[in-house]
């Protein structure tokens, strides 16, 4: 399916949910509304798009400029060799979004990492807890307001480290 047809399909299929659709070389970039995430992702996984591989799932803290968090999903289609970047903007206070762990199994750990680093809550995630930082760590390190060098003393059986 040619690139122009694909953009048409996106806009036709997700007309209510798409905020913006554009191209970046061979790949596509789709910005959608948070409510439409599961529907759009489910359709992207199936015919005729077949984006069956979830390459990556991450977040960017745009609270300073756009007062929102931006979730970024990278999907890949093994059949066509095309990538798509799906972006979703979340409000800055109490950010939460549906979990795609039911669609792709690696989303389980990826969403735990985003929760650990940014504090985004994933609704429907089977076991949302920290993955990279230790239990008892307070705060979300990759947020822009967390200083790089803040050290939290870690007490271990009475010995402070």
């Amino acid at each position: 399916m040619g690139p122009e047809r694909l953009i048409e399909e996106f806009e036709k299929g997700f007309s209510g949910e798409t905020v913006e659709a554009s191209r970046d070389g061979k790949d596509f970039i789709l910005v959608i509304r948070p409510e439409a995430l599961l529907r759009v992702m489910g359709s992207l996984k199936e015919d005729p798009f077949f984006y069956r591989l979830l390459l990556d799932l991450t977040c960017v803290d745009f609270r300073r400029d756009a007062s929102s968090f931006e979730m970024v999903y990278h999907l890949f289609s093994l059949e066509t060799g095309r990538r798509i970047r799906v972006k979703v903007r979340l409000p800055a206070d109490a950010p939460s979004i549906d979990s795609v762990a039911g669609l792709w199994r690696n989303a389980n750990w990826l969403e735990r990492e985003v929760y650990d680093m940014f504090g985004i809550v994933f609704i429907g995630h089977p076991d949302l807890k920290r993955i990279l930082m230790y239990d008892g760590f307070e705060g979300f390190p990759l947020r822009k307001d967390y200083p790089l060098r803040r050290r939290q003393p870690k007490a271990d059986k009475g010995n402070a480290i």
Binding site: R52, L53, L54, L55, L78, W104, R105, N106
Partner: peptide, 9 residues
């Protein structure tokens, strides 16, 4: 199918 579902490359 499982490997693709887990995002293996």
């Amino acid at each position: 199918e499982e490997a693709v579902s887990y995002g293996w490359t």
